[in-house]
């Protein structure tokens, strides 16, 4: 298609098809269709189906009926949903900066070339990410156990019930600890590989100008990996809003504290699997998906705007 646009630059040869409209070129689709097919099947269809479901109500008595936006009106006023949302928001605001801060620190430390055995540290910090999430949470669950677990042991040693990982005021911290443990290494690898792409002549120039230590980090390294930081932040925001594995696996150990509506995703799960409320569950999932998309988009916009400047 681009060749047609260049026609005015070739005045010597009169255009052959000046009068007929350019024909639609379907060649592109021949290459795209395998992707398009999978995309429609796995992405568009479930989304459309969820949207469709969210417009109905299927009752145990009375059957299925179209209710328009009733489910959405209910979701927007549903205290259980907003309580769960508030919880993941709090989690996001506290846990994500800590996790990314630690990851950044680790990446800068390894990149500083002042450590011995950096390869070893890199592997060790990354290793938790290689443990399947469910296994990791089960493991932490054993340690958190305040009857027979590590927490019980420490409490006994201290002679008082100081550590109570499943108490209502502790449980979010306990979950945050697991998530941080799991994902610091992952984010560190993102940051570290971004640091490696910074051209070395910048460092040489900085050295000649007499910059050292913090100045290099602030003036070269951090701006250089800003893109990676924005991406990691967006991933982390999405991960926080979708918090499910950790509380879900810990739930049998603290069912009164980690309720069925502890996070929005858990709420959607228990709505459909315990309450048979598939329609409302779809609504909750869509509302949460839209909120996540908007917040992630805003973060992304802010991140890239600063970068252009």
């Amino acid at each position: 298609m681009t060749t047609l646009a260049r026609a005015p630059e070739l005045p010597t040869v009169p255009p052959r098809t000046t009068l007929t409209k350019p024909r639609r070129d379907w060649n592109g689709w021949k290459f795209v269709w395998p992707f398009a097919l999978v995309f429609v099947l796995t992405f568009i269809t479930p989304l459309a189906y969820a949207l469709w479901l969210s417009l109905f109500q299927n009752k145990m008595v009375g059957g299925n009926q179209f209710v328009g936006l009733d489910n959405y009106v209910f979701a927007l006023q549903d205290p259980q949903f907003w309580e769960g949302f508030g919880r993941v928001l709090l989690f996001l605001v506290v846990q994500v900066p800590i996790m990314l801060g630690l990851a950044l620190l680790a990446a800068l430390a390894i990149d500083s070339a002042r450590l011995y055995a950096t390869g070893f540290y890199r592997i060790v910090i990354f290793l938790p990410y290689a443990v399947p999430a469910v296994v990791a949470v089960l493991m932490w669950g054993f340690m958190y156990g305040d009857n027979f677990g590590l927490a019980a042991g420490i409490n006994e040693w201290l002679g008082s019930e100081v550590i109570r990982p499943f108490a209502p005021s502790w449980v979010l911290i306990s979950i945050g600890n697991i998530v941080t443990w799991q994902f610091v290494g992952y984010n560190m690898v993102i940051f570290y590989s971004a640091l490696k792409t910074i051209p070395t002549d910048l460092y040489e120039a900085a050295e000649i100008d007499g910059a050292r230590g913090w100045q290099v980090i602030r003036a070269i390294k951090l701006p250089g990996i800003r893109g990676a930081i924005v991406v990691a932040t967006i991933f982390s925001i999405i991960g926080s809003f979708q918090l499910f594995n950790e509380p879900s696996v810990l739930q049998p150990l603290a069912s009164n504290v980690i309720t069925g509506s502890f996070t929005p995703n858990m709420y959607a799960y228990s709505l459909s699997f315990a309450g048979q409320q598939y329609n409302y569950s779809a609504t909750v999932a869509i509302v949460m998906g839209v909120i996540t998309a908007v917040i992630a988009y805003v973060v992304q916009l802010r991140g890239s705007r600063k970068e252009v400047r």
Binding site: P46, L47, A50, V231, I234, A268, S272, A296
Partner: peptide
């Protein structure tokens, strides 16, 4: 970054959708 962000968003919405589907 923009493409990655869009892909991430897509993944977020997708998993929300499959959960209910």
């Amino acid at each position: 970054i923009l493409t990655k962000a869009i892909a991430a968003l897509a993944a977020a919405v997708l998993s929300a959708a499959t959960l209910t589907a």
